[in-house]
Design a binder for these strands. Structure first.
Lengths: 194, 194
DNA sequence: GTCTATATAACGATAGAC
DNA sequence: GTCTATCGTTATATAGAC
């Protein structure tokens, strides 16, 4: 990676963080530029406008997130379906907690600015499909448990993922963990047929 | 209500809608003013700054939402606990779907701008407490069903409320309904002890 | 590829007439 | 209480030197 590409990547990284914390409108190109110690007009050597920059950040985030989900399919194959579902929920939450990219998805994926609504809804839909595929694999690999229909499991899993993410972002970690585990128990209890 | 108060209320109403759809930064005082056919500086006769205006809108929304939740306690007392929980979930979703105030909570309650984070988190916490009280009343009024512990029910109810709200805002109504019902079934199945 | 200088527009907010 | 005129600031974006 040469110097130009390095700068471009630094712009993407810092734009990601600033957009996520301050919001799109509240983040100026000067904010982004000064965070990597260049001047605002230099950004235009790499991106043709602020809008395009935001779109490129979105692409970057989507690629990374989908890659992460696919990686889970490999990492999780050793456990029982119960353990796998729980681990998947926790790992997804961790991804959102630990990475700047998670913060971006949390901020813009759920309540997108009007300007980028189509773009961001497409991103969400794609990641949802990836998680759905992964859930199907987990559920089909289990012959011990009897489950309610798969569609209900996928839908409610995605639903509690959104809910726990909200807890993760807005409560101290301990409170989040308590809430995650309570919600998980109701979910697991709700999807198995006894 | 005299003319001055009427204008003040119109500013609040229109600011609510514009903030919710465009976001705080992307909404200018001129946008708000021209939507009620006055000029931007006239707003300062009613509110001392844009920040204060946003805070007043937040207060207005909180008051209305909490009143709505309390009203549910009266409206819902005729059904079984299963019907009441389901109706409550649906009614809360409807509130968010049908009113401008719901859009505001959806936009700013879940991912607040840094500037108003404390204010909005307090609003969320207060509404959460109200829903919790209501859930306790519903669950304690039932002697037929056996439930898992109440805390788990409250937490997972709030969790799926957040999740279904996301579905409501980002999918066509029919898809939302399908997802709501699937999630509800897993939830109910998960909180009763068979 | 980064800089300085600048164009152009919009913002929040104030002053003062009516 | 609403207006016009305006201040001071900041934004995105461009031009052109190096």
């Amino acid at each position: 990676m040469n110097k130009g590409e390095k700068t471009k990547q630094k712009i993407l990284d810092n734009a990601l963080v600033l957009f996520s914390t301050k919001g799109y409108e509240a983040t100026s190109l000067k904010d982004i530029a000064s965070s990597i110690e260049i001047k605002a007009p230099s950004i235009y050597a790499h991106f043709s406008s602020k809008e395009v920059l935001f779109e490129k950040v979105t692409e970057y985030v989507k690629t990374d997130y989908i890659e992460f989900i696919r990686k889970q399919a490999v990492d999780l194959h050793l456990f029982s379906s119960k353990e796998m579902l729980y681990e998947l929920l926790v790992e997804l939450n961790k991804y959102f907690y630990n990475t700047d990219l998670g913060l971006f998805i949390k901020k813009f994926g759920f309540v997108p600015p009007e300007k980028f609504k189509v773009l961001l809804n497409n991103m969400y839909a794609e990641t949802e499909r990836e998680i759905e595929k992964l859930l199907y694999t987990i559920l089909e690999g289990d012959s011990k448990e009897r489950f309610v229909d798969k569609q209900s499991i996928v839908t409610s899993f995605l639903c509690i993922l959104d809910g726990t993410l909200f807890y993760l972002m807005n409560f101290p970690y301990e409170e989040y963990e308590r809430r995650l585990n309570r919600t998980w128990e109701v979910f697991w209890n709700g999807i198995v047929i006894k």
